[in-house]
Design a protein around this nucleic acid. Structure first.
Length: 582
RNA sequence: CGGGCUGUGGCGCAGCUUGGUAGCGCAUUCGCUUUGGGAGCGAAGGGUCGCAGGUUCAAAUCCUGUCAGCCCGACCA
């Protein structure tokens, strides 16, 4: 196919749009791929739509390769299925709700687990029908609190979502693995740099869950990776390795000290080091007891929970929430302290907690034989050398302390560093949550029903356009990988005389004949404009037909490296075909 | 939802303090020149200044409200 820029619906911009911050947003707008229509809503112009379609194609090929079957649901959905799973309310303000003329409730689908589960229930009823994998590539709607960065986070976006239906946990694990491998092939083909991190499944329920995060300094998701190994994880999923237990026998007796005006860790450490105890204390030698209250799902009342972390660390709210999910967590209010006078703010210690029957969970670093400075349950008093396993016995561990750069990697190799990424894919084993709600069963060989177990797998297809742009651009503009480029070659006619024009036209026709898609700059603009636009648009191979034509050569430029070679015009088609076909 | 900044031809901006004929660059159209790195000269079209209300003889400019955008935070499969 030949696309003529003289008639292409395209206007490139010389300046960055004022509302754009990240490179992909600036460049996709400047190069005429997308235009903003409303908050979080973008239109796809011809070049942008081609890239989007090519990405879809890669996704479809790999989904089909693992036996996925494509179907399509409406985006406009009735309330009932989402009412049944509780997500009509659970989704909160992020759900676009609409009323029809009769006052009936509808929503614009944010994700389609309900519909897939109901559809399978409607069609299949025998164990012989399973397993099955269905998918769709469809527009999703989420009323994001803050859409940002152009198409990176919109309120309407294109997503591939697939769902596996299996008879057993082993089957689900196999379907999950198939998807995981398909996703790796997809992202590899798209030329992306990414990591797979273990994630918490959060509100979706279910167990195993991994996210595919594309490396990008502008990403919204923070994760940690090891300096030495390929370990990577969401902060919520980092497991702190427990040090080996120590001997109790050689520890000095615990002693209560009068420590006036030391309600914070900082004041306490300063005081201790000035108290002449014969050793240096750091915040890491102290044990901070943090009180929260938790409420199990469906429960009416809150239960107090004490969490001990080393004094140099804070409780990370996200890790806390993930660790206690699905229970709700809240900080204590003044009234809670009043109701429990044994809680001496700033001086809480394990003794009072355990004496009063409060569940006491400690950081994994608090192992048997470790000695701590902690509260003595009395204003202005702390206890030194309180030994775990001798002076107090926790009810268990809870891994909610903040994770920091320099912490040892959980796999034992290297230390952790923080990195930022953009979520491009998410796979997880949903389990039977949705099947239970809808009674999704298959009749087994013994004529007894088998509850189906589901997996759910998503790829942000439209987001990928931005993510690829984010990872692949330079000062001049976009640099598309061949797999998704809006054209195979960009032929620039650099000259006004008829010979040059005809030479460019002829080459374009020959390349088209050879099966390549050609973007032909046949405009009457000056060469400088055309070169700048070619670099902005980002087709990986640029062919300049111009002054060299007189001596029988054209110039072939690699967009990524900037390298240029002169190729005899008679060899150009073969040369370019080789380049494009790899 | 909280804090900060910003809304003026298609795009990027000035004008607002001190109210009085709406301006610049890019883009677009026409003419002549130019043609390997975002050309030159000349001419032209295009904006009820986000929206609503108020003050005033007079509002882009002052006041009130509202909507939208960007950034930080909260939230978010």
């Amino acid at each position: 196919m030949i696309t003529r820029m003289s008639s292409l619906f395209l206007r490139t911009l010389r300046e960055d749009p004022a509302d754009a911050e990240v490179p992909s947003h600036k460049l996709l707008v400047r190069a005429g791929y997308v235009r903003r229509v409303g908050p979080g809503g973008y239109s796809w112009l011809p070049l942008g739509l081609r890239v989007l379609r090519r990405i879809e194609q890669v996704v479809r090929e790999e989904m089909d390769a693992i036996g996925g079957q494509e179907i399509q649901f409406p985006a406009l959905l009735p309330r009932e299925p989402y009412e049944a799973t509780g997500r009509w309310t659970e989704y909160g303000d992020s759900l676009f709700r609409i009323k029809d003329r009769k006052g009936g409730d509808y929503l614009l689908g944010p994700t389609h687990e309900e519909l897939f589960a109901l559809t399978v229930k409607g069609e299949y009823s025998s164990y012989k029908d399973f397993p099955v994998v269905l998918y769709q590539v469809q527009t999703k709607y989420r009323d994001e609190a803050r859409p940002r960065a152009g198409i990176l986070r919109g309120r309407e976006f294109l997503m591939k979502d697939s769902y596996s239906f299996d008879l057993s946990d082993e089957g689900l694990a196999a379907s999950y693995q198939l998807h995981r491998e398909a996703y790796q092939r997809i992202f590899d083909r798209l030329g992306l740099s990414y990591v797979i991190v273990s994630a918490m499944s959060g509100a979706m329920g279910g167990s195993a869950s991994e996210e595919f995060l594309a490396d990008a300094p502008t990403g919204e998701d923070t994760f940690v990776r090891s300096t030495e190994s390929d370990y990577a994880a969401n902060v919520e999923a980092v497991v702190t390795p427990a040090p080996p237990a120590l001997s109790i026998a050689d520890k000095p007796e615990s002693q209560v000290h009068h420590t006036p005006d030391t309600p914070t860790i900082e004041t306490l450490v300063t005081f201790l080091n000035g108290a002449g105890l014969g050793r240096e204390f750091t915040a890491a030698d102290t044990l901070k007891n943090v009180l929260v209250k938790v409420r199990a799902p469906g429960a009416k009342s809150w239960e107090l929970l004490a969490i001990a972390v080393p004094g140099d660390r804070e409780v990370d709210p996200k890790r806390l929430e993930a660790a206690l999910y699905p229970s709700d967590v809240a900080l204590l209010e003044e009234a809670d302290f009043t109701a429990n006078p044994f809680l001496v703010k700033g001086y809480i210690g394990p003794k009072a907690l355990q004496d009063n029957g409060i569940r006491y969970l400690v950081d994994p670093r608090v192992v048997t034989g470790t000695a701590w400075v902690t509260g003595a349950d009395k204003v202005d008093h702390h206890v030194v050398d309180l030994v775990c396993g001798r002076d107090f016995t926790p009810d268990g561990t809870i891994d909610v302390a903040d994770v920091r750069e320099g912490d040892p990697s959980p796999d034992g190799r290297g230390t952790l560093v923080a990195a930022r990424g953009i979520e491009i894919g998410h796979i997880f084993q949903l389990g039977r949550k949705f099947a239970n709600v809808f009674g999704l069963d298959a009749l087994g060989a013994d004529s007894k029903p088998i509850r189906i177990t589901m997996g759910s797998y998503g790829i942000g297809v439209s987001r990928l356009v931005a993510v690829i742009a984010e990872q692949s651009h330079d000062e001049q503009g976009l640099v598309w990988p061949r797999a998704v480029s809006p054209a195979d070659v960009h032929v620039v006619i650099a000259g006004k005389d008829d010979a040059v024009r005809e030479g460019g036209e002829r080459l374009a026709a020959q390349l088209d004949e050879a099966g390549l898609s050609v973007l032909l700059d046949d405009r009457t603009s000056t060469p400088g404009v055309k070169f700048a636009d070619a670099e902005l648009i980002g087709v990986p191979t640029i062919v300049v037909v111009g002054r060299g034509l007189a001596k029988g050569v054209v110039e072939v430029k690699d967009r990524a490296s900037g390298e240029r070679v002169e190729v005899p015009v008679d060899d150009a088609v073969a040369h370019l075909t080789d380049l494009v076909r790899g």
